[in-house]
Amino acid sequence: MRDFSYVRANSIEAARKAAALPGAMLLAGGTTLVDLAKCGVAQPETVVDITHLKGLDTISVDASHATLGALAKMSHVADHAGIKSHFPAVSEALWQAASAQLRNMATVGGNLMQRTRCPYFRDPSNFSACNKREPGSGCSAIGGVTRGHAVLGTSQACIAMYPGDLATALVAFDATVHLGQRVLKVDDFFLLPGDTPEREHDIRAGEMITAIEIPGSAAARRSTYLKVRDRQSYEFAAARAAVGLELEADGRTIRDLRVALGGVATKPWRARAVEEALKGKVLDEDTVRKASGLAMEGAVDHGANHYKIELAPRVVARAILKLGETA
């Protein structure tokens, strides 16, 4: 790891200013930043420690919305009673992410900013070609080991999967990211790789995530998060789905449905085609399984990740069916 200088920010303003300087990076939980600095991927000249800022770690929840301070820890949000009852998918996404220790360190703001786990991205000394790291250098993953790579939202330049669990739940429920002056929908905050895979977020120099806001809804209240992976725990997903469901008074007809996917896409992926296909329909297994296939519209595989195209719709279907069973 390159040497850097360390400053501890004592106000949001100071943090923003310090972070706007060239070579400066914010340090929240450090679980992405320190890791990538050791890999030689992140090379900060200055690390701006925001972990001692006061007031940015609050979690407030009521029926109409939840506000998560950017520095709220993943573990605290996961265990928060209000989140559990009003946004179960958010709590489940969080407690199934990483490990208990990492969740005690990692912040929700940092979580949105985490980088891909593409092994080529993470190993600059062995793989010099990576458009995300070095624009224009090429993509080592294409033609290489692609089992964990995305099938949705890919480009010629990059097929890296976005690994975060939380954001998958957030896009399902139309959450927004507060960046000081600007407030963006999570869906818009994350960018497709296109020709500029190095740009992953719509965030500008001098901006900092201060909070995440999630509007409450009946679908959010009846929601779940399903994560499928090789190992039972402490692993990123092969495929995952956040789903929220609201039924009509008849208890069978779908009034509102939210579906977002992860583990298969280059950014948190809202599956609106599935939602539209099922709204107004009676919830039954065949209909749900058929509609879930729509989640994969436009999917492109790179060999070893082909299984994701089969797997992801099943994860979506099972998540919806599970909600249907919980009357």
């Binding site: 786990r117 092994p119 080529y120 190993d123 290489g144 080991v145 090789d230 190992r231 039972q232 725990s233 402490y234 692993e235 990123f236």
Partner: peptide, 16 residues
């Protein structure tokens, strides 16, 4: 070997 670490070379966890 590209999965030369303990996040990608999967050994069982307690939960397995």
């Amino acid at each position: 070997i590209v999965n030369n670490n303990l996040a990608d070379y999967l050994v069982p966890t307690n939960a397995d």
